[in-house]
Write a protein that binds this DNA or RNA. Structure first.
Lengths: 223, 223
DNA sequence: CGTTATACAGAACGATCGTTCGTTCTGTAT
DNA sequence: ATACAGAACGAACGATCGTTCTGTATAACG
């Protein structure tokens, strides 16, 4: 391969992490296995782990990549909307859409990671918690803007609104996926809109997906 | 006075499962390990697995026991309240309390299991989903009663209310635990009350009744 | 050109996984 | 007194875990 080495390495590692994100979104960050991931990528275990040092560093890289993916498809795309309720409304739509369209094959990555590390200590716990805190801060900031602009009930605490939105999206997406009811996400969306005082739905579903997409990716538990 | 053999066996298995529930609420149902659990119980791996047949059956037994524990401390204790909004209010309080008082050392058991199996197929997935469906049906039934009695907005869909309550409790408890903020559960409670149209809080925390004290039996090593 | 650094494969490590044997012990029934 | 059933043990199975070491091919540099 006459590829330039640094580029090849960087790109290769990027692809590695992307594949690991998909796998970990199903199996969990803790269920990630060097042997299985290496086999899926067609490389040796030593070659794979050599890119990260050890497994925990690999998990951290995977987590960071998943957060970046979420940030890109939800936060970044909402930046063009004016701060406040309007941006909050767009965030909710993008948030639900990213769940509906299987940006992560196994459902919301950070939710999975949150459950895995909510009762443990260590580097992964800290990084997951930090990511959730950052996201809550974003939501709180927008909620505060909305409240200051009079678009949100003056009695509503921005931090409480942020926490409520996060709880609904996190818990609701899991339940919708577990029960195999894509319509559950409509309920989550409605509840999130209710949480910020928006009407159940605006005119038509402007972000309507063409088909329900029954893509249920499932992995055999064993062999 | 020699105990009858079947009784002794049942009790021993019950203690085994109770310990496994505590362990699995932290490590996850999938993170349960026969070797580690056996070591913690002071028995051999073969002796432990012999009680269930294989690991999956043990996981199923652990899941069933956890569901039973939840049912006891939340559903059963709310039965004395009149059906409808009043019972729903009590359920919310008991629900939050069971999270606050660490009925499960690692947080809500079914939430953990939901995340673990929401993207997989098999027996465990089906049983978790069935448990969630049963619980949603209970909540929906109470919400319908409340609506029919005029205690809930006539425009509120009981199934949507049930789903919203479940999502809030599930997602909120994880976030509160992950962030290490017990006050987060107050937010969850407030949001759940808001979901059923109840005022943020009734007077003071009237639900500071003595700890429910779930049966937490400690197993003693065999002589 | 030679030298050096890097990336990966291959092999092996100790540990642990779930499972399966054969044995032993205990209590009950015949 | 004998036979049997159940539970648990200890040992071992093959598989897989994360990690480490060594050899080698290639790319980068002078």
């Amino acid at each position: 391969m006459p590829r330039r080495a640094p580029a090849a390495v960087a790109e290769s590692r990027e692809q590695t992490v992307a594949a690991a994100v998909d796998l970990a979104s199903i199996e969990g960050l803790e269920g990630l296995t060097i042997g299985r991931l290496a086999g899926q990528l067609g490389m040796s275990k030593s070659g794979l782990i050599g890119r990260f040092g050890d497994k925990e560093s690999m998990q951290a890289a995977v987590l960071a990549a998943a957060i970046e993916r979420f940030t890109e498809v939800v936060w970044a795309r909402a930046q063009h909307a004016p701060a406040g309720l309007e941006r909050l409304e767009l965030i909710v739509d993008l948030w639900i859409d990213h769940l509906r369209e299987d940006v992560f094959p196994g459902g919301c990555f950070v939710t999975t990671a949150s459950v895995e590390y909510d009762a443990r200590s260590g580097r992964l716990h800290d990084e997951v918690a930090a990511a959730v805190r950052r996201w809550l801060a974003v939501l709180e900031s927008e909620a505060r803007r909305a409240r200051d602009a009079g678009d949100l009930g003056a009695d509503r605490d921005p931090a409480a609104v942020a926490f409520e939105l996060h709880s609904l999206a996190s818990g609701g997406s899991v339940a919708a996926r577990l029960l195999g009811e894509p319509a559950g996400l409509d309920r989550v969306r409605a509840a999130m809109r209710r949480a910020v005082g928006l009407p159940p739905t605006t005119a038509a579903r402007r972000r309507s997906s063409p088909s329900p997409r029954p893509s249920r990716r499932r992995s055999a538990p064993r062999a």
